[in-house]
Design a protein around this nucleic acid. Structure first.
Length: 186
DNA sequence: CGACTTTGACCCGCGC
DNA sequence: GCGCGGGTCAAAGTCG
C-alpha cells in the first residue's frame, strides 16, 4: 500500500436516499448524505450473487451457537443511542481506498452496494476496547473519490503519525465534516 | 505464528 | 409474510 497525498473534498454529495429527493447537499439534514450512487440500476452482484440460500450448503454446520450469543444493540438505525455514537463522513480524492490516518484498522467485511459499482468495505479499529468503525466506498461516478465514514470515537491516542494525517486534519478544518446524530442514521 | 484479509453465510430492519 | 439490502460474523486463506 503506497503512501499518497489526499485531497479532501466537500462532504459527500449525491444522496440517493431511498425516499428523499436528490437535492443539493443539506448540512442540516445529514441523513441524506452518502448512500452510494443513484445513477442507474446498475447492479454489480458480480462476486456474490447474494444468494439467499440460507442453507443448501454443507457449510451451514457453522450455525452452532449463534442463537444466543448474537445479541447486538441497535444494528442500524436502532434507538440504542449509547451504541451509535458520532458518525462523520467525508470524501477524499485518492487512488487508494484506505486513508492512512494513523490508526490501525482491521477489515471485517465487504459488501456490494446496490447502484454502486464498487463494494463497500467495513473496518474496525484494532485497538482493544476501541469500538470505532469506518466504512470505505468509492464513488461510482467519480472513481477517484473515496467516501470514508467514521463511526464512534477513539478511546486511545493515535498510534502513529503520518504525513497524511496532517493534510487530512488541516483540510478537515476547512471542510467541516458531517456529524450524524444517532437518530439520523440512514 | 500472529495479524490481517477474504468471502459466504447469517441476522435484522424495512418496504411492499 | 416475504424478499431485499445492508451490516456483521467467523472460518479459511494469506502474508510478513
Amino acid at each position: 500500500m503506497q503512501m499518497e497525498k489526499y485531497q479532501i473534498c466537500l462532504p459527500v454529495s449525491d444522496p440517493s436516499s431511498p425516499s428523499g429527493s436528490p437535492s443539493s447537499l443539506n448540512m442540516a439534514n445529514p441523513s441524506i448524505y452518502f448512500h452510494g450512487d443513484n445513477e442507474n440500476g446498475v447492479r454489480p452482484e458480480s462476486r456474490t450473487q447474494h444468494s439467499d440460500a440460507k442453507h443448501s450448503d454443507p457449510q451451514t454446520s457453522r450455525v452452532s451457537s449463534n442463537s444466543e450469543i448474537r445479541v447486538k444493540p441497535g444494528m442500524r438505525g436502532g434507538d440504542n443511542n449509547e451504541f451509535r455514537k458520532h458518525k462523520y463522513a467525508f470524501q477524499t480524492r485518492s487512488q487508494v481506498d484506505i486513508l492512512d490516518d494513523g490508526y490501525r484498522w482491521r477489515k471485517y467485511g465487504q459488501k456490494t452496494v446496490k447502484n454502486s459499482k464498487f463494494p463497500r468495505s467495513y473496518y474496525r479499529c484494532t485497538n482493544n476496547g476501541c469500538n470505532v468503525k469506518k466504512q470505505v466506498q468509492r464513488n461510482s461516478k467519480d472513481e477517484e473519490i473515496v467516501v470514508t465514514t467514521y463511526e464512534g470515537m477513539h478511546t486511545h491516542p493515535i498510534e502513529k503519525c503520518t504525513d497524511n494525517i496532517e493534510d487530512i486534519l488541516r483540510q478537515m478544518q476547512t471542510y467541516t465534516p458531517f456529524e450524524i446524530m444517532p437518530g439520523h442514521f440512514l
